[in-house]
Amino acid sequence: MKTIVKMIVVLTAISLLSGGLLSSLDSYTAPRIAENRMKQLKAAIAEVLPKYDYYDEFKTKTSVIYVGKLNGVEEPVGLAFKTAGNGFQGKIVMMVGVKPDFSEVIKMRVLEQVETPGLGTKIVVDPSNKENPLWFPEQFEGLILNPAIEVIKNLKPEKDNQIQAIAGATISSQAIANILNEQIAEVKRAYEAR
């Protein structure tokens, strides 16, 4: 009987202390962590929109749209939102900025990806291209959204809604186009119905 009591007391005591310690620790680290997240978010938004003074948040059922505005100007400078979907090896998360009329992309930035190093990772940066390592993301600047984004292999794109795929990483490239097409359309529907 003594053993049983001791067992229960000791394990409960350890657990209580653990819970207490972690809770106190959390009040110390949680603000910092939230701050870090906010910083990351703001940096991502700032990258994909032209200059803005502040942004409003517009929540849809599935995402949050960051509406960048200049002081005193009603018309937003652009809309930024996260898009995510399946790439070749895992999830790809992007922050994309579009014009308020959803006619073209302002800029795109990949936030998270786990594509094949050296191939799929070229969607972020391509070190093998010495002149312009950022050639892939740069294709999205000013990319027309109507008709939908198309991916061309091996040739230089002719139309303004086309981008060139990464040689050897066509699936990653196509995944980006698919994610953007689908989700930009969805966000457009939700925003314009507000």
């Binding site: 053993t3 000791v10 394990l11 657990s15 209580l16 819970g19 972690l22 809770s23 009040s27």
Partner: peptide
């Protein structure tokens, strides 16, 4: 320090600990 979250944390952890200890006692 948020008192509610502290109490909830300790209660849930302590509760789990006690629960498992009782389970181990039964097994013993």
């Amino acid at each position: 320090m948020d008192l509610t979250s502290l109490v909830v944390s300790m209660a849930s952890m302590g509760g789990l600990g006690a629960l498992f200890a009782i389970g181990l006692a039964i097994a013993h």
